[in-house]
Write a protein that binds this DNA or RNA. Sequence first.
DNA 1: GTCTATATTAAGATAGAC
DNA 2: GTCTATCTTAATATAGAC
Lengths: 207, 207
Amino acid sequence: MTTDVPQTRIQRKNREAIYGAALEVFSTEGFRGATLDQIAAAAGLSKPNLLYYFPSKEAIYTGLLSGLLETWLDPLRDIDPTGEPIEEMLGYLCRKLEMSRDFPRESRLFANEILRGAPHILDQIEGPLRTLVDEKSALLRGWAAAGRIAPLDPHHLIFSIWSTTQHYADFGAQVSGILGSEGEAHFKDAEDFLTILFRSALTPVNN
Amino acid sequence: MTTDVPQTRIQRKNREAIYGAALEVFSTEGFRGATLDQIAAAAGLSKPNLLYYFPSKEAIYTGLLSGLLETWLDPLRDIDPTGEPIEEMLGYLCRKLEMSRDFPRESRLFANEILRGAPHILDQIEGPLRTLVDEKSALLRGWAAAGRIAPLDPHHLIFSIWSTTQHYADFGAQVSGILGSEGEAHFKDAEDFLTILFRSALTPVNN
DNA sequence: GTCTATATTAAGATAGAC
DNA sequence: GTCTATCTTAATATAGAC
């Protein structure tokens, strides 16, 4: 987006610290709920100094979002058209689940944004993301036509992988409240369950 | 919770109007993002009049949440232990999907709350909700032991039904951005897909 | 019960010294 | 580049008349 070239390395370091702090605060408080005081404190800067690096609260937020969206979609891009279809899809499932485990703040940041109608990233959803999803959907349709996976609706299949895996990050408070213990203990069980769920649905020879 | 007995019917009518307005505003803006001005305008009242009926913004929010949580769990309660297991679970799936279609604001309200760590309803999650989920999990384990459904982890099965169905309400902006057209057109496809997904996983005789 | 007017705080953003 | 001090707006909540 803003192809600014930070010159000094103290600038670069501070911008990174701000993005880290912003991720922490925005992901738990949402855009409106987050305050510049919180972000400045988390970044170890004064509030005016924060606004020396970014022109506004919204600039921090949009810069953070667009920077993360790119890497967020890497697992989907990594589905290999030349691989074994079911293992490719189960591998994608596991990578998504790992991202919920290892990057829950990023997941919640996007969840917050989309919940409100995705005002800042709707363009990227309707553009690059849609293109990528359509491309992978075509791949899935090809696999289904070749009898290598079951003939499922590819878009809704992708949605179901997103929702089931991101659930453990976005709704982690509920998961922990129901299962008891905190932490990452549930992720192994979740992986086992989801692998069975999607393998049984993807396997073509259920006739 | 507040076992207030509204006396006049104008009181009751205004309280209902406020809850309706609060649902609209809180579900799209979140707790912090919502303002009393917005809620008062949506309810057709002045701001001080709003605060005649409720002592604070938070009181409106918590009253709304706890009132809705009760009915939100009805579909889960309605799973019939004496019914045919797979049809009971697929029926539950469909009822949850219908709730996402018909009550997306309620779904987003809860999603917002849980995303932030469920500060206002953690007690009800760890109490009544957990009890209900554990009860239904025991039922599912019994069905699995009897060979009537596949032996899946019951908690994660329930989570996956929640996440896949609520996705169409909570992440509706993304779904519409990718599939194109707005509205409820996607729900039929979603129902078909999810029915296949869960039927294939629940059916026991895949050996 | 409903209103106008207002007190009070919090938060985004800026001025200007160093 | 970083700070203190401050401007400005907006938002929760209250006072008090009707």
